[in-house]
Design a protein around this nucleic acid. Structure first.
Lengths: 364, 364
DNA sequence: TTGAAAGCGCTAACAA
DNA sequence: TTGTTAGCGCTTTCAA
């Protein structure tokens, strides 16, 4: 029924191991023999059985990418990078979308372990720690993307949150702002912490005191951005600028400001993370105002590619302490608003991939 | 080194096949024996090897989903439906993103065949036909999503393009339009053909002649939408409404109308497909104007779920001729524009999944 | 440069 | 209700 190596071997008049060598391009095979085997493969429409190969060789030629959601282009752009890099090496990718659901993450881990994937690239959640440690006990090669869990010893690939926050904040200061509010995501994850640190460092640098009243932290979603801006303005704290450390919060925050009748940037200047090319349904306000705010855009595609490159190094047996790759975040200065045009071009994702990706810093 | 069924069996004092029965919950095992085996599994941290199981049982418990892109929420919402349905049955999903690249599609097929996935759900491209036929020769269960290739005998799950086009067009006629232009995607694929057919049927029904000048076909992207609207207006054809049969084209088309200074809907009324919750970077114009246009929204999540349900029926050995499931497309009437609000709520995707999905029609 | 033998970890088929 | 035997299709190891 199904065509196996046996059948190919028989037809080519060689042994199965010779067929294996031809298929995998491993070991020595005479050109003439190889041609005969190839002909037999063609004639019989032979397709190697990956299960059998994996069982015997103990490598599946598959990796997994675990993502909190695929409903947002930041994550899917990372996925494309991962996929392209894996595909280039003949690896398949299990794309696991946890939907921010811890139980779902657990079930995925179970499945990946059963499937004996060769390695896992993961955007960990706060609760992933114990699972990642279990994986490491089982010698599973692991790379963390975007978030770094402090108690997990594994390579990390992320963007320069601190530097980007400094640059965004400085752009506001340069524009004359002195009463700068901060809106950002939870401090339980590293990007949240680093962005707040960068904000504070920039203020300190300019000899501006950071007022706790003006720092608002919440979940990274548009509604929270909306709410925090509302809180800020209702409290009556004087504010002439807002630094928003998260794209989704920025969308809600800017909508709130708009509804409050604030002119941007005349009354309130804005600097924000803004790296969703595919904006979500709340996007219009941000899209309309993006020309007049300074934005930070993370190299999502490269984060995906480089994390898998590193993963393959570990799969290949690379030893050494875990590494922390920090990629530069692009800072885009505000442009004059052009009616009808929405500065589309500058927001486009880097589709033609740079062959060599510059790295800002590697820690450790 | 790795813990196998042997080890578990030894510890539990049973044979390997008994362990297999406990793990797979198949066959008869006494409660007391099962408990002993479970204890041994826990104690040894045993995780079944899916490769070995697949090799022997000839089923991998994995399926594939092949998509043209993951950069747009219509497709990722389908993916979520596929994933949830598969997960509920303990299946893993290979998510294959072809990026509209035929060579990439080919490489994916190769990989899926090697991995002996149990079935494939695919959004076929025009060029997929020969590959799908090859798969069928190999008895691979197959479901087509969204597009139906005429020369492929396989189940289809799609939305009611014809009906939605009729409804959209009628909404324009009801609003008093008589010179209605049509902008839509290629007629080489079934949705493109069906939407144009629906448009024409609605005109005929209202005793309005369809002018070839007012029908513009092109690639399904914002730039093309922009260009076709520009062509239409430059040609001087009188137009009081536009039916846009594709979300991405709608975005560009509406922008073009805006830049031309047309008031919507006073000068030109619009009805459009609009089923991207996560809009792309061109979205602002559509988002701003969506309250004043009639929109069609496809049940993407359910398309994913139902296609996999059908796929499992085929994997389970269901015979019978291939089926064509046509799901209803939701038609959302225009709402009065509300400054600051963007009719966000009505565009939200159906996340809590209906247990039983209504079906408009099944052909054949 | 090629091949023979063994076995990866599991389950189908049968037997008890 | 449990076990025995055989073998899925490939690659590792060793030998020629």
């Amino acid at each position: 029924m199904t065509v196996t190596m046996r059948d190919v071997a028989k037809r080519a008049g060689v042994s199965v191991i010779t067929v294996s060598r031809v298929v995998n391009e491993s070991g020595y095979v005479q050109a003439e023999t190889r041609a005969r085997v190839r002909a037999a493969i063609q004639a019989l429409h032979y397709i190697p059985n990956q299960m059998a190969s994996s069982l015997r060789s103990r490598q599946t030629r598959s990796i997994a990418l675990m993502l909190p959601t695929i409903a947002n282009s930041f994550w899917t752009t990372i996925a494309r990078g991962v996929e392209d890099e894996a595909e280039a090496r003949g690896y398949s990718v299990f794309l696991c979308n946890t939907d921010y659901d811890d139980a779902k993450e657990g079930r995925y881990f179970e499945a990946l372990l059963r499937n004996r994937v060769d390695g896992i690239a993961i955007v960990p959640s706060e609760a992933s720690g114990p699972r990642l440690r279990t994986l490491q006990q089982r010698q599973m090669p692991l790379v963390q993307i975007h978030h770094k869990l402090d108690d997990v010893e594994a390579d990390v690939v992320r963007s320069d949150s601190y530097g980007a926050a400094v640059a965004l904040t400085q752009s506001l200061i340069d524009a004359g702002a002195r009463h700068i509010a901060y809106i950002g995501g939870p401090l339980s994850m590293s990007p949240g912490r680093n962005r707040l640190d960068g904000f504070r460092a920039a203020l300190t640098c300019a000899a501006i005191a950071d007022e706790p009243d003006r720092i608002k932290i919440g979940n990274a979603d548009p509604n929270m951005g909306y709410r925090l801006v509302t809180e800020l303005t209702h409290a009556g704290t004087p504010i002439d600028a807002v630094m928003i450390a998260n794209s989704r919060m920025a969308v809600g925050a800017i909508r709130a400001l708009t509804e409050l009748g604030k002119r941007i940037p005349e009354e309130i200047a804005i600097a924000a993370y803004y790296d969703i090319a595919t904006l979500d349904i709340y996007s219009s306000a941000l899209d309309v105002y993006s020309p007049v705010i300074t934005t930070a855009i993370q190299p999502a595609y490269d984060m995906g590619r480089l994390s898998v490159r590193r993963l393959f190094e570990r799969i290949g047996g690379m030893a050494g302490p875990s590494d922390d790759l920090i990629l530069p975040t692009r800072i885009v200065p505000p442009a004059a608003p052009v009616p009808g045009a929405h500065n589309v071009e500058r927001l486009r994702m880097p589709h033609p991939v740079p062959q060599d990706v510059p790295v800002v810093a590697t820690a450790h």
